[in-house]
Design a protein around this nucleic acid. Structure first.
Lengths: 227, 227
DNA sequence: AACCAGTGTTAACGTGTGTTAACCGATTAG
DNA sequence: CTAATCGGTTAACACACGTTAACACTGGTT
């Protein structure tokens, strides 16, 4: 039997909060209940839960604001918002991008469980597939981390991570310049091309530690990552 | 006539599975059809196919999970996923690293054939292009490195490496000028021919250290690498 | 508002690769 | 023998790419 999944539940109405907490605990989740957004943020930092269930309407920091703050720290944690019917659909849907979902009150416990399991499964897939080993490096694409052996991981920027991802996807083959430019920069004009050169240079510097990995240029066509 | 390529097809919908199986068999592939992920894994272990075509949505072990298990055993086998349109692009793309590809349902049989042949060809190239020894030299084609005994390896350019590769593949036979020109330069006009002369000259200089290796000219026909 | 840190783009300058040109020797047909 | 052709070699060149730094923009902090 493996460790229980920890869920942070932020709900200001005590009666509802307890019901949800108890229901989830019968499903073998470990639930931390907070009565407002500020408190929830503290609990998040102390316990680092694996999933968040946030009421949108809360005193002392609402669910959306809280979500943004936590997303700045961890941009892959799944979040489920609990919304009252007064919330406009648009605003709520805007927040469901990424690993988010939402539930309109009132909802059945079954609906919540299904959504929790869906998000956990989706994240499971991402975690186990998008950590790629590359020579002596480990590349965690969703977290944009590049680690050499067991040294301190380097934080890559968004562009660096995406470029590296595509190079790895096409490793040992020539990756077409204009293809990558159109995919990552949206066009393949002169300036984007020069910008890409800069990022190739940055990646080479970061991959320098493992001599067996090289980004070779194929003049006029693109790049080839060999490993 | 060489041995048929064995493909493992995992598809839970019997009608679709049979159509694909039969189509591939008319293209002279040997197809093993399994109706779920668990069964497919058994078949994989018994027959060790050369390529996998996996439906993502399957009862008793989905395609992604199956792929992960098989990849733990063989991390080079090419895999093609068949995905329904409900699958999010991100998750699917995460799985296309390495030797993978995917096809959105519905798809034409032609698309599938093209992808199968691409992946098989790609793997073929990787297998046949390892490290070649040439007299006292070691030539690493994918990395474009030419090493004399244990001296510091020389970094070849893309053109140099490809030209040398073809010379080696046809060593001790005459390699036709226009053949190589069409293959590497895309045409065999005057200028390309002169350009090739320059590269032959460069290669001769780099191979000079080992007297027993020579690139001989056969006037009017081409070159012969002797070693 | 002023400041700072992080990210990506633009600019400036340097290097490497492949093509073209120029000049040469070798081979061969007439 | 000699002119024509083919290939060898070197250098000049154009341009693709590499590297570094300056700059602009964003979002957060004081």
């Amino acid at each position: 039997m493996h460790k229980k999944t920890t869920i942070l539940l932020a709900e200001d109405e005590p009666a509802l909060g307890l019901i949800i907490k108890e229901s989830l605990e019968t499903r073998h989740f470990h639930v931390l209940l907070s009565e407002n957004g500020e408190r929830a943020f503290q609990v998040y930092q102390e316990h680092q839960p694996e999933l968040l269930v946030l009421d949108v309407m809360m005193p002392r920091k609402d669910g959306f604001t809280l979500a943004k703050e936590i997303r700045a720290i961890d941009d892959t944690i799944p979040i489920i918002f609990l919304t009252a019917k007064s919330q406009t659909q648009d605003v709520v849907e805007g927040f469901t991008i990424g690993g988010n979902d939402y539930l309109k009150k009132p909802f059945s416990m079954e609906e919540l469980i299904v959504r929790i399991n869906n998000l956990l499964k989706r994240k499971e897939i991402q975690n186990t597939t998008e950590i790629i080993s590359l020579g002596q490096f480990t590349f965690n694409f969703p977290k944009q981390l590049l680690q050499f052996n067991s040294e301190e991981p380097m934080q890559l920027t968004h562009r660096e991570a995406h470029l590296l991802f595509h190079l790895i996807k096409n490793k040992n083959q020539v990756l077409d310049r204009s293809l990558i430019l159109n995919k990552l920069w949206g066009n393949d004009d002169f300036f984007s091309a020069r910008s890409m050169d800069v990022f190739i240079s940055k990646l080479r510097k970061k991959l320098h530690q493992d001599e067996s990995i090289q980004i070779l240029n194929v003049r006029g066509f693109g790049y080839k990552l060999i490993c």
